[in-house]
Design a protein around this nucleic acid. Sequence first.
DNA 1: TTTTAAACATGATTTGCGTCAGAAAAATTT
DNA 2: AAATTTTTCTGACGCAAATCATGTTTAAAA
Lengths: 235, 235
Amino acid sequence: MNPPYILQLKTWKMQVKKEDFPNWFGQLTDEHWSNVLKNSVCLDYNKNEIICKQGAFATNVYFVVSGMLKVYKEYKGENLIMSFVRKGEMFGLSSIYNNETNLFSAASLTPATVFSVNINIIKNQIRVYPDFAEKSIIQLNKEYANTIERIVSLTQKQLNGRMADAILHFARNIYGSDEFNMQITRRDMADFCGMSTESAIRILKELHNDKIISIEGKNVKILNKQQLESLSEFG
Amino acid sequence: MNPPYILQLKTWKMQVKKEDFPNWFGQLTDEHWSNVLKNSVCLDYNKNEIICKQGAFATNVYFVVSGMLKVYKEYKGENLIMSFVRKGEMFGLSSIYNNETNLFSAASLTPATVFSVNINIIKNQIRVYPDFAEKSIIQLNKEYANTIERIVSLTQKQLNGRMADAILHFARNIYGSDEFNMQITRRDMADFCGMSTESAIRILKELHNDKIISIEGKNVKILNKQQLESLSEFG
DNA sequence: TTTTAAACATGATTTGCGTCAGAAAAATTT
DNA sequence: AAATTTTTCTGACGCAAATCATGTTTAAAA
């Protein structure tokens, strides 16, 4: 390995450095980072490939190097998307003590590169480094808080409010802009909002007709943020 | 303090020993346990008293010494009960890194005794004892897995299935028996199932009429467990 | 390029479930 | 014991949202 402790991806186009995931590996010594690398793989995925499957043995924690994934719960042929994961983010930590099985499935929404670390390495890091353990707890708390907000949105709000929540989430947390290309299909949007595809399409059209957003294909622009926030609050 | 390191409750009827919460304080030295006690209080609550309030500064992690509590999310006057907490169980860990505020409210459903530990003591234990940190992560994972199961139940199942889930949860996890006195009102049951009080009452009546359960007042008995599980699965 | 399959779109129909109204029973309080 | 409040209960009604049906557009594959 040269330079030392840098993971060369198979495509030779990218490298993963521990600094790319400061909350996770930033505090490791080079020796430990090297040890992590030995128990890891880095894979390239095409669009719509499955990274891990709900219920399967939990073998890895995943770090997204590039691209966008969906983490979702499967139930009777229906999918409920729990979160979208992008470059610099990780997932799978919430399954490491879950009866050895994955709580969620994950799949790529775009071509993606994912760095997978063996679960036992992570567990060991937690036991050895209090700092690593604390970071893990902070991450779990954050994920949990998001999930709770989603429970409230999904169970207490109706379609308009849920869709407003989703669009605001995209603008604020995913793309960091009021104008974005949302990469995902209406069906995924529906699976994220816990509604039927038809309803998702209908509501996006309504928001467009009411000039609250403009949407052409997958290009979204928030035109009236205040009204959108009001829908999120009262819809 | 005498005997040393045992918290004498105000009522002088009970004591809290670190062994009562083996996952949490079992591994502490007597010296550290003594330190925990110095930063804790133990309070008696009447029925229907609020232990902590969603959105308030998160100051404590709570350990239930006796009685039964509900942990719930408030939204526009509606409550969604996330979990019931009983003797030997704890809550509040999921709020310790949540912008300093409580993710949930909690209230007593029966008279209850609750042992509250200062949040900074918990954070410190996490940093000092890898074992304590690992136990915390296991607890958070468990709580998270429960929450995910509830998301699925609440968003993917309809009323019958949700009520079946709730009754099975009471029998399996809370009372450990197919026959139990469910202490809580129909309203709380509705808040746990994410439905209106009228619907909860109606469905319990229907289950009773169909001889799947028998219910008189608050006394519940599962008569046809297979059918109840089938409702949970397909309802 | 042609064929096939997804994705997007929209109207019509059905239904699950919340809301409303009103009453009986049970639990608290006076 | 009486009065008041809370909880339990039941029917009628209305609506939000899923489902169904059918067509169009876009993207992928042959």
